[in-house]
């Protein structure tokens, strides 16, 4: 467990340096929660050696600097504050190895006011740091032990799963797409089996100024298929638009798989309206939260397992 590990490091360190224990507790702020203090204590102790002038029980400017940086880190992680880039870089470096679980997603003022300039930098940040470790994915975490646990600056996403506001953000686009598809089908003479489904979907999406991404995986490479399946050959195709999952299809070759997936996707557009939702589905043997496009009919079958997962830092969907 993440939290255990961090605590272990701290308690181990304090066991070796018992003279620090009392002193470091005196640095705790009066309104800090246990969780916040645990993280900050680790931050201070881990960086103690790079501040050689800091002596326990003596307040000095260098101690204040260390405290200040620890507060920058804590304010960023727990309160959602953003500091100038140079400060952020420095703190991220210092925070390497600290693991904090369940960080709250907060929206900064700039985000609320609709300034998108943050996303670019936070994406970059995402690559070299881990946002959030849920107790559970221990494999990833142990590999990432050397990385800093820093919340993403702006986008509010964390490692697994789409940001909670994503459905509302994507909904207007799919409302437009719905309209485009409806008109296109009208001019093509209505929905039916003899259409070039992929072409229709692609044209509609492009007329809505977005692009369709297809991911192909050979059927045999997919885990968790029902055991009774006879067929082992062929391709599976998954369609996404703006990271929102639209459909999966199977075929002998890539083209037919794609056509089948498009047909599935167009079926969704046959209902009264389409909705973007966050749903659970399987991905590589694990349950993940994914953004999917659904119609207003309730289905009980669930979704086929995901072939790609765009909400993971180190896995981007490969657009075709």
């Amino acid at each position: 467990m993440a939290e255990r590990r961090g605590e272990d490091v701290v308690s181990e360190f304090l066991k070796q340096n018992p003279h620090l224990a009392q002193w470091v507790e005196s640095l705790r702020g009066q309104c800090e929660t246990n969780k916040q203090w645990r993280g900050r204590k680790e931050f201070i102790l881990r960086n103690l050696e790079s501040f050689p002038t800091v002596l326990p029980d003596v307040s000095s400017p260098s101690l204040d600097r260390l405290l200040s940086l620890s507060m920058v880190w804590a304010n960023h992680v727990f309160l959602g504050c953003i500091y100038p880039q140079s400060v952020m870089n420095k703190v991220n470096e210092m925070a390497e190895g600290i693991v904090v679980d369940e960080i709250q997603v907060r929206k900064t003022r700039d985000e609320i006011m609709g300034k998108g300039k943050r996303t670019a930098t936070s994406d970059k940040e995402m690559d070299n740091s881990i946002k959030k470790l849920k107790a559970g994915n221990t494999e990833v975490e142990s590999k990432a032990g050397g990385r800093a646990a820093v919340r993403s600056g702006g986008s509010g996403t964390f490692k697994c799963g789409p940001p909670p506001q994503a459905p509302t953000e994507h909904q207007p686009f799919f409302n437009r797409l719905y309209k485009a598809v409806a008109w296109k089908l009208v001019s093509a003479g209505g929905f039916g089996p003899n259409l070039d489904h992929f072409e229709i979907l692609r044209a509609c999406i492009e007329s809505s100024k977005a692009s369709l991404s297809c991911v192909f995986v050979p059927l045999k490479d997919i885990p968790d298929l029902p055991a009774g399946r006879a067929q082992k050959e062929g391709q599976v195709c998954e369609l996404r638009c703006q990271t929102v999952y639209m459909g999966t299809g199977y075929g002998r070759d890539e083209d037919s798989a794609r056509a089948m997936a498009s047909k599935e996707a167009l079926k969704i557009f046959q209902s009264r309206k389409v909705t973007v939702k966050i749903c659970r589905r399987r991905f590589r043997g694990k349950d993940v939260e994914d953004l999917v496009l659904v119609d207003d009919q309730l289905r009980n079958s669930g979704f086929p397992p995901a072939l790609a997962y765009p909400f993971q830092a180190d896995q981007q969907p490969s657009p075709s």
Binding site: L79, Y83, R109
Partner: peptide
Amino acid sequence: SIIDFYPEDFAIDLNGKKYAWQGVALLP
């Protein structure tokens, strides 16, 4: 040694309200 007092941007918790200016500014 007091750089943590001056964030560039800060989170706002709308706290059930509609506009940013009504929300709680989470400043250190």
